[in-house]
Design a protein around this nucleic acid. Structure first.
Lengths: 208, 208
DNA sequence: AGCTAATGCGAACCGGGTTTACTTTTGAAC
DNA sequence: GTTCAAAAGTAAACCCGGTTCGCATTAGCT
């Protein structure tokens, strides 16, 4: 049957990824070559690239936040900002079931490599485009039909989410408990989305 | 004297860049190899990389908008948003003296290549970090000392500026006159910065 | 068992970028 | 103008991420 081979493939994929992450954690992303990873994992380089389209994907595969889906699924009468606020206030619950240590390792690998940080930016750019499409109600791959407001909002939401999330994971990485980090996160989420809703007004006027 | 050699170096640099841009415009960024560029420019590959740190830089060098400097130089009592609004309202005057055709060619090259678009994102990320530093008053290379509001504002400003600018250049690329594009730009700038100042409120509530 | 299709493989290749070791320019001092 | 040191240029070999190709192995199905 097909199911058993799928499972074996998934196992092999995880094996390759874990091998790679272990090496990256030890010596940094750029200091490890794909040849090494392949050898350490006991597969051919070409096989590695058969499972992961690029070296970056060994780390970044699966980091995409689907803000567009959250917004698209918002309840009647709910604004995109409300839907996202709700979603991110609930984030600690989602993280609770995961291997936080592994998550932190991956974070450390990412922030230790300019290429990976850039990769994250690239992924968020795609998110922004998707979100703008949802907001303006156009199909996901339409050309930019001049909905400046939707484009602006999408860009600002994605940027906001990234900042807030970054703070959350940094606190976790600093050893803060999941519970406490969750509390801080809640405050950050509220602050960030309130700013989006009500604006910056005259904040940061020169000379205050 | 040193001046004359500086001038010759600058000329050679421009020659290499122009050679490359011509090839890119003709066949696309990825379809041209640096070997070809070097040969076409009559220079060794290693010399090319001596002038430009990477193939991307042949196109992207000089695209960085220094929003951080604009904000840092704001007048007493002026908010960052006011300073930037003023600056971008004046943008058409800055563009007027430039070779618009060359600018458009470069734009077309960039949007024709995923790698270059990603490169632009990367550059804007650096801008965001600089701007956050200016806003929160910390030194440019300090570690992230938890000024969530400044980080948020920086991210949102950079995203906003990018969207507005993109619209401006797209209109120019579509053949709109500089004068008309300037008018549209003014409207976009005002709309965008008003949103930043006053927020999105309940815009895009589901079911409107 | 036997056939077919998928998967894995080594090796050669490509292109961006670096290193090395050598030659040419260059600019300035005499 | 000659000389000399530093700067800049060069060819060639190399490294690494990623692809292509032709062949071997395996898996699933009958």
């Amino acid at each position: 049957m097909a199911g058993v081979s799928k499972e074996k493939k998934a196992l092999r994929r995880e094996h390759i990824r874990n091998t790679a992450l272990a090496l990256f954690a030890e010596r940094g992303f750029e200091a490890v070559t794909v040849n090494e990873i392949a050898e350490a994992a006991g597969v051919a380089k070409v096989t590695l690239f058969n499972y992961f389209p690029s070296k970056e994907d060994l780390v970044l595969d699966g980091v995409k936040e689907d803000t567009a889906a959250v917004v698209a699924a918002r309840r009647p009468g709910q604004t995109p900002l409300d839907a996202l606020r709700e979603h991110y206030l609930a984030m600690p619950d989602g993280v609770a079931g995961l291997d936080v240590e592994a998550l932190m390792t991956r974070m450390r690998i990412i922030v230790g490599s300019a290429a990976l940080v850039a990769g994250v930016q690239r992924i968020q750019y795609l998110q922004r485009v998707e979100l703008a499409a949802v907001l303006s109600g156009r199909a996901a791959c339409d050309a930019h039909t001049d909905d400046l407001e939707a484009d602006l909002m999408a860009a600002q939401i994605v940027a906001t989410v990234q900042m807030v999330q970054q703070g959350f994971f940094q606190r976790l990485a600093a050893g803060v408990s999941l519970r406490e980090a969750g509390t801080s996160l809640a405050g950050d989420v509220r602050q960030a989305f309130d700013l989006l809703e009500h604006g910056y007004g005259r904040r940061y006027a020169q000379g205050d």
